[in-house]
Write a protein that binds this DNA or RNA. Structure first.
Length: 288
DNA sequence: AACCACGATGGCATATGTTG
DNA sequence: CAACATATGCCATCGTGGTT
């Protein structure tokens, strides 16, 4: 049995990406006729038209769309295999990395991360961008190099994940808040008015689920999209809020900067189940 | 090593189809 | 009808494998 011509993978990758024989030919420095013949060979090998005429141009068939991601990944991996081995010199590396992080990451890890990058890779610039959702499309499209957050759903084989840290919830009230006096109980915590943090604007979260298990409910006075807004509101009111705090961090590095806010003492620092901010169980953050 | 046959590939020229 | 894009016939070139 003859082996398929693996060069056709590159041709298919470019054809699908460009959606045009002429453009693919220009990109691969071939004539349109040569590219057209390559497409004909691909059609013969795959048994699918792959790209069909639609007016003046071509449109991919469902099979071509299905193959698109796999082919692109295969070509990149093959190119990596065939590339001469070279040692990465961090001192001479000049480029920008885009990090898509959930709320609080920059405040917790930004300073030490930037300090280490400045020391080990002075030519590297870090761009922190917000993470409004769990959509991994920016990772796949290459507009984001690394993403941190709670692992959720399927990430696909092209995304690599690594556990970085676990975080937990801590309750936050202003300095001198009545809750700071005496023993913190679930009932005392639930009483009063709360700030709910929800990126998606939901009207309840995992804290409410946990309270419900204990037969308690809380009153949500306001919903905000991030921890910074919640801290600002808590600082200037009697409202209570919940903040995520990486357990790998020692000391109140994050919360200590919230002047006027007090860290709830004792067991109230962590919710009853030791939950992370988004899932019922503690989750490792993901590095993709 | 030199030669030859064969198949694969690509370029040129041209046909065909579509759009404005 | 012109312009553009794709498909195809014909030919040249190149690489490979077999033979001498």
């Amino acid at each position: 049995m003859s082996r398929p011509d693996l060069n056709l993978l590159v041709t298919l990758d470019v054809l699908i990406a460009e959606g045009s024989v002429a453009k693919a030919a220009r990109r691969l420095k071939l004539s349109p006729s040569a590219m057209s013949r390559a497409l004909a060979r691909l059609r013969e090998v795959t048994g699918d038209p792959l790209l069909v005429r639609a007016g003046r141009g071509l449109v991919p068939t469902p099979r071509a769309i299905e193959l698109g991601t796999d082919v692109g990944r295969l070509v990149k991996e093959a190119e990596a295999v065939l590339r001469p081995a070279e040692r990465l010199d961090l001192k001479r590396l000049t480029r920008s990395f885009t990090l898509r992080n959930s709320d609080g990451f920059v405040e917790n890890f930004g300073p030490s991360l930037l300090a280490r990058v400045a020391e080990e890779a002075p030519g590297v610039q870090l761009r922190f961008v917000p993470k409004p959702d769990k959509d991994s499309a920016p990772m796949r499209e290459g507009s984001v190099d690394l993403e941190t957050g709670v692992i959720g759903g399927s990430t696909g084989p092209e995304v690599r994940a690594q556990a970085l840290f676990r975080d937990r919830f801590v309750g936050v009230v202003r300095s001198g808040h009545p809750l700071c006096d005496g023993k913190i109980t679930a009932a005392r915590f639930a009483a009063g008015r709360h700030i709910l943090i929800s990126r998606r604007g939901l009207d309840r979260g995992p804290i409410d689920d946990a309270l419900e298990l204990a037969g308690l409910t809380r009153t949500i006075a306001t919903v905000v999209g991030g921890f910074a807004e919640a801290l600002a509101l808590a600082r200037g009111s009697d409202l209570k809020t919940i903040q995520a705090k990486p357990s790998a961090c020692t000391g109140p590095a994050f919360l200590a900067r919230s002047e006027g806010s007090g860290l709830l003492p004792g067991s109230a620092r962590q919710n009853r189940n030791g939950r992370t901010r988004a899932e019922p169980d503690s989750h490792p953050a993901s590095l993709r």
